[in-house]
Simulated scan of single mutants.
Amino acid sequence: MANSKLLLAFSLHLVLALFVFDLANAQGLKLEFYKKSCPSAEYIIKKTTKDFISRAPTLAAPLLRMHFHDCFVRGCDGSVLLNSTSSNQAEKDAIPNQTLRGYQVIDAAKAALEKACPGVVSCADIVALVARDAVLEINGPFWSVPTGRRDGRVSIASEALTNLPAPFFNITQLIASFASKGLSVKDLVVLSGGHTIGIGHCTSFTNRLYNFTGRGDTDPSMDQNYIANLKNRCKPGDTTTFVQMDPGSSQKFDSSYYTVVGKRRGLFQSDAALLDDSTTRAYVQLSSNPSGSSTFLNDFEESMVKMGNIGVLTGSSGEIRKQCSRIN
């Protein structure tokens, strides 16, 4: 019986691995893309990431967020890294991206790679690999990252505003936003679990505390004790203070985010919205239990691979930037 269970478990893992491999190949990506052209590429990225995260573990969350923000605008093409020019305001300067951090990690990895293998490794691949390695450094899950992405040449601030799901989105808007990128309702609730690490700025949720419907009221879907706690931290008009998205566990990658949401203490309206759909609500309830933790971590790995395949440029499309902040 024990051998049968082990065989079944192995078979399931093999099926998942083949699914991920086939999905990546369908997009023109593959595992170990740089095996011949730059054999040390993934090691260099991992070492660079480790060096930064060991000194500043709180960088893991923004680096994960950077990957998400990159992929949701023009696909995973590194466009979020481009600087604005005199004639164009880039994604980096759009309001949703003004709180992004961790560009120095990407730049350091790119500089090291340019010394080892000039003009070979894309910034888009660096973003994807750094996000994975940063999460792994804080004892989060590991997922295979197929590579071969190329860098985009276009970055427009207004596209970030129209493509990134806002913290005030309701469940209908969230589902539509993720569906437009080829992601399912399950992917939505799973990837939302990334909020188990990191912070939220007061400006992203103070409307829920002070003026939810324009009448000086609070959001009735939020736990009143939590509202009182947040009011002590965030005063009206506060643009600098931030709080943990998963209080007490913001540097540990686990499923406790779902416990917080289940208690009506999700920081953003988009967190609270997960209780407004039967599928997402069931997942929140499942992952709130200790037995659901491993399910969430496995699901997160799968959804991150799917997200990393959104709109990728491969082959002769795009370019391999020499510097991640500007086109060649």
Score class of each variant (00 low, 15 high):
Ser54Cys: 06
Thr196Gln: 14
Lys47Cys: 01
Ser184Val: 11
Ser79Val: 05
Gly119Ser: 03
Met66Pro: 11
Ser325Glu: 07
Val80Lys: 05
Asn232Tyr: 12
Phe142Glu: 11
Val305Ala: 12
Lys92Leu: 12
Arg55Pro: 08
Ala112Asp: 08
Asn163Ala: 15
Leu209Met: 11
Ser122Leu: 05
Lys322Ile: 11
Ser40Glu: 13
Ser54Gln: 11
Phe72Cys: 11
Asp219Glu: 10
Leu31Asn: 15
Arg65Gln: 13
Ser303Tyr: 02
Gly148Met: 06
Ala128Arg: 11
Tyr43His: 14
Asn139Val: 05
Tyr283Cys: 03
Ser155Phe: 09
Ala112Pro: 01
Gly318Ala: 02
Asp133Ser: 13
Leu136Ser: 15
Ser291Asp: 13
Lys322Gln: 08
Lys181Gln: 00
Ser317Phe: 02
Ala94Arg: 05
Asp246Phe: 01
His195Gln: 07
Asp70His: 05
Ser4Cys: 08
Val243Thr: 02
Gly266Ser: 06
Ser180Phe: 07
Ala112Leu: 11
Arg65Ala: 06
Ile106Gln: 05
Leu297Met: 09
Cys234Leu: 09
Val15Thr: 13
Glu319Gln: 14
Pro290Trp: 08
Pro118His: 02
Ala9Asp: 10
Lys50Met: 10
Gly318Asp: 03
Lys50Ile: 12
Thr295Trp: 09
Trp143Ile: 09
Asn170Leu: 07
Arg265Ile: 08
Asp223Tyr: 03
Asp276His: 12
Arg233Pro: 03
His195Met: 05
Ser270Pro: 04
Cys234Asn: 01
Gly28Pro: 01
Arg281Tyr: 08
Asp254Ile: 00
Pro236Asn: 02
Gln27Glu: 08
Lys46Tyr: 05
Gly148Cys: 08
Val154Thr: 05
Cys76Met: 01
Gly119Met: 00
Leu82Asn: 03
Asp107Arg: 10
Arg74Gly: 09
Asn3Asp: 14
Lys115Ile: 13
Ser221Arg: 13
Val73Thr: 08
Ser84Arg: 10
